[in-house]
Nucleic acid binder design. Structure first.
Lengths: 231, 231
DNA sequence: GGATCTGCCGTATCGGCGCTACAAGACGAC
DNA sequence: GTCGTCTTGTAGCGCCGATACGGCAGATCC
């Protein structure tokens, strides 16, 4: 069992290495197999398919991505964390362009959950922002906006790596999307206090829950808060 | 000469058809050749390479993209044109997902100029906005921001096509980037407000239409708006 | 303890791919 | 007609993803 797991990991690492060093962002199953000293059928038993191997590589990429995020998202200000998250995303794309495209570019028939899990991370970060009343939108909606913009910018930078040298463009995009998603820093007391208060409470509940209410009551409360926070 | 040109066009069209209908967004040079009834060496003499063929397909995709843009970018209000341009971009992505990815996703060693030329179109549209004082940034900078956001959003929609059903997300992104790039609508220099208002309404009608009016009424309104917007 | 069975592994191979060497043919110049 | 050039189809190379199959270990049973 652990035997096959370490073998899996070795093959994933070899595949990722070859992906990063290949000129056309492709891998050959044969090369991966002989890099770890096994024959081809074991690859197909472990991953079923070349696509399965690529999915595993993408998921492994998510692990590194998540580790990087966990390492730096430790400040107390969730809005500052969000900014750092954007820059960290760009840095990840710069450091691993081929892996990045594998993770975030639509591949037909892909079963990788990398992108969804990255968005879950982003939703969590945004929920922390909502908890301090800094979010204007639903966390999921805001996350879709931010992630799409982040990926679009990163792909542009990957296509023309010179852009990485000057973070002005990336920061402009970041500010554009964030200013549309976050409340004004000065007036975090806002125009629609009822709605933001509801969003805030909902975020707090999702974060920590409460023992003051029964689970069923909490669920009902969640639905009410959603209705209050609607448009 | 014209012989080889029509052959080129036929092969490009066949390749695009196979690209659109293939399940993995790939093409086989053999299949393209026998679809037009020639042998493989002619492909390599015309395009040099499989990549050359794909580049030609991408460039051909740009031609269709440009034609679509030229057909609808006829209003008088450049800002309304810009909005229409964003939506047209999304519609193109929805209608040709595989071709879209070929054009706008970074491919190693690609010599296609599709993306650059799309950005040139965008720069031109933004320059027209700047001409009426509607632009806060350099046209090229603004174009990079808008195009990256547009591509990021479109790729997200391609990965989960259900998103296309509801344009709210796309429009939110559009507004976020545009509000960062364009000046306030109130502060815009407007020599003939009646005319621009008419042009704007006409552009909106051409984009999405309305259910509030009967088709005949809409057609009549269109003609009236044209007369109002006459120089 | 030996026979039998089960599950895994490497060998060999298949069909298809991108790409090309090369001979056969078309065609104008003389 | 003959030659030289240029185009074209045939046949094939090496590589790819994927798999059928025989052999071999260890577990199981009597």
């Amino acid at each position: 069992m652990a035997e096959t797991d370490t073998l899996r990991a070795a093959m994933i690492e070899a595949a990722e290495r070859q992906l990063a060093s290949s000129s056309d962002h492709e891998i050959a199953t044969r090369a991966v197999c002989e890099a770890v000293g096994v024959s081809q059928p074991v690859l197909y038993r472990l991953f079923g398919d070349k696509r399965g191997l690529l999915d595993a590589v993408a998921d492994h990429g998510y692990e590194r991505y998540a580790a990087l995020k966990a390492a730096q998202e430790q400040t107390g200000d969730p809005v500052a964390d969000l900014h750092a998250g954007w820059d960290g995303h760009m840095a990840f794309a710069r450091a691993n362009p081929a892996l990045y495209q594998l993770m975030f570019t639509p591949r037909p028939w892909s079963h990788s959950t990398a992108r969804d899990r990255v968005m879950d991370l982003l939703v969590a970060a945004l929920t922390r922002c909502a908890a301090v009343g800094a979010l204007k939108l639903e966390p999921r909606t805001a996350a879709q906006l931010i992630l799409s913009a982040n990926i679009g910018t990163a792909l542009d930078h990957i296509a023309r790596p010179a852009l990485f040298e000057d973070p002005a463009l990336s920061h402009r995009m970041r500010d554009a999307v964030f200013s549309h998603v976050l409340t004004e820093t000065s007036a975090r007391q806002d125009a629609d206090p009822l709605r933001t208060a509801a969003l805030r409470l909902r975020a707090q509940l999702q974060l920590g829950g409460t023992d003051a209410l029964e689970p069923a009551e909490t669920a009902l409360l969640q639905r009410w808060l959603e209705r209050i926070a609607q448009p």
